[in-house]
């Protein structure tokens, strides 16, 4: 069982001031009130945390956390 979801939640806790229990797998970024600037910020944090490369479009405001986990896990780890 991967820990991608938990690590993604921890990014929201560490960088965006969330409490762990404020985030659920079915929540969209829009519901979490992350605007476009925050999503770019999150994209940067995800790249650093998971050592992957994302495009600007990989995380969408209408994506759920669960969908984001799938996107992250689909990307190859870069050195």
């Amino acid at each position: 069982m991967s820990d991608t979801y938990e690590r993604l939640v921890q990014l929201l806790v560490k960088n965006f001031g969330f409490d762990t229990d404020e985030v659920a797998r079915e929540d969209t970024f829009s519901k979490l009130e992350l605007d476009s600037l925050a999503l770019v910020e999150l994209t940067l944090a995800v790249q650093q945390e998971f050592k992957i490369k994302l495009t600007d479009d990989d995380l969408d405001a209408n994506d759920t956390m669960e969908q984001a986990v799938k996107v992250i896990e689909s990307k190859p780890v870069v050195a």
């Binding site: 960088n15 965006f16 001031g17 969330f18 409490d19 600037l37 925050a38």
Partner: peptide, 12 residues
């Protein structure tokens, strides 16, 4: 800043 402004906003 978290106490003053709120944890969900202060980082901005």
């Amino acid at each position: 800043p978290i106490q003053a402004i709120g944890r969900r906003r202060a980082w901005r």
